[in-house]
Design a protein around this nucleic acid. Structure first.
Lengths: 238, 238
DNA sequence: CCAAAAGTGTTTTCGCTACACCCATGA
DNA sequence: TCATGGGTGTAGCGAAAACACTTTTGG
């Protein structure tokens, strides 16, 4: 019989870096994606909400299915390590011999609102920058890569900026977010013009102070117009 | 325990219409998507290949996961009908009471190469035009709709023309395919120019004869350039 | 006062749109 | 011969790319 699990790639944006919320496993000293199993009367979406809620303290987050991972070898890819590290530890050793089919979800959250919370098997729950190359459980590194690819493709169809940024943000912050997801630089002036032409941002009177240079204006999303614009997709290729 | 099933939306293009390969069930007289269960040592992709092979006689087809359907109610949506129609018939009645999680795949095939083959539960295997409104099992109608939406979104990222058309095809045929997927008309001349500008087609010396009017040129995809172009996505919004 | 970041504007180029004319074919 | 579909070309417009100058800020 197949086990259905869920793995969540929770993205946050902080300090001009895209980060993923990961659990640091007590026994294997590796990082793992927050995950869990589907309960009998849940939809996958409800299960993913539950998993994300338990790690972030937040409810009703933006979540999207992006791929199912079903390679029978996937639960074995790290088996040697697991066997060694988990000997005599709490989880049942044979548990990891079973086959897992995992549905990948990605989630977009406001970094500052999250309270990272470890689970029973982990000693820490950390935001890990995508630049950091940490050791990860099973095929979780690959799952993150797939999530980013999806994010890139859906940049114009999903409310990515809205969900990842705080309510008030600056244009350079929004641009860096786009650049991070796309993996390439964008022209500052063209970016700003294009964004403003979408007519989905409200320019606020305030500026962001405290930076070392000229203080940028703050913007916020105009929810109504943003929602409407997304229905057709924000035209244009970045 | 959850059952994992697979449903395949097999698209073909014929007579200037987009069609789906469906099974006509013996007992319920409804149409059903070709589907099946995941075997223990298969990936989902391998299982989908197997399912599609059994219905079409073709191997190594283009297949793509597009969504997982996990609503606990989905196997019940047609339950009344099932209970009535299947009373006393072969499949175990309680079988359909269980919960099904189904992974949706779509496949793109060359219509002319397919040999539609029914399975044990069906008396026919038919190509059904998307315009026809036939009665369908469970939520299969909705699954087809989701497949088309995905197709539309991925029109510029997936080799949709290549897989759905025969090796040699005319520009009007390619255009009709695009129009069908997008659900709207396109300008004949602009379509041709844009397509040719992608530089992925080879114009052949031959023309297609037999039509009632001026004989159109035949084209074929230049595999090498097409493959390369798809990596970035064919830019532009149709 | 100066380096670095941010605000703003202009020119040019390219692609998309909208349209018109001619040609070939089988009925 | 003619209706229909298919091949091909062009003018105009708008969005995107490329690019420069000025302003603000903390150090």
């Amino acid at each position: 019989m197949n086990h259905i699990s869920i793995d969540c790639v929770i993205f946050g944006f902080n300090n001009n870096e895209l980060k993923v919320l990961l659990l640091h496993l007590k026994y294997s000293k590796e990082y793992s994606l927050p995950g869990g199993f589907l309960k009998y009367d849940e939809t996958l979406e409800q299960a993913a909400q539950r998993i994300v809620r338990e790690r972030t303290g937040l409810d009703k987050l933006f979540l999207k299915q992006f791929k199912v991972f079903s390679d029978p070898e996937r639960s074995k890819s790290n088996k040697a390590i697991l066997d060694a590290d988990m000997a005599g530890s709490k989880p049942d050793k044979t548990f990891f011999d079973k086959r897992f089919i995992s549905v990948g979800f990605y989630s977009l959250v406001d970094f500052r609102k999250v309270k990272p919370t470890p689970d029973l098997f982990s000693d820490r729950c950390d935001w890990v920058s995508l630049n950091e190359d940490v050791s990860m459980l099973l095929d979780h590194k690959q799952i993150i890569q797939e999530a980013i690819s999806t994010l890139r493709l859906q940049l114009n169809q999903q409310p990515i900026g809205l969900k990842l940024l705080p309510r008030k943000f600056t244009m350079p912050e929004l641009q860096t977010l786009y650049e991070t997801i796309l993996g390439r630089d964008l022209d500052r002036r063209n970016f700003q013009r294009k964004m403003l032409n979408y007519n989905i941002l409200d320019k606020l009177k305030e500026r962001k102070t405290g930076g070392a240079h000229k203080s940028p204006y703050l913007y916020s999303f105009n929810m109504e117009r943003y929602q409407k614009a997304l229905e057709d997709g924000l035209s244009g290729i970045w």
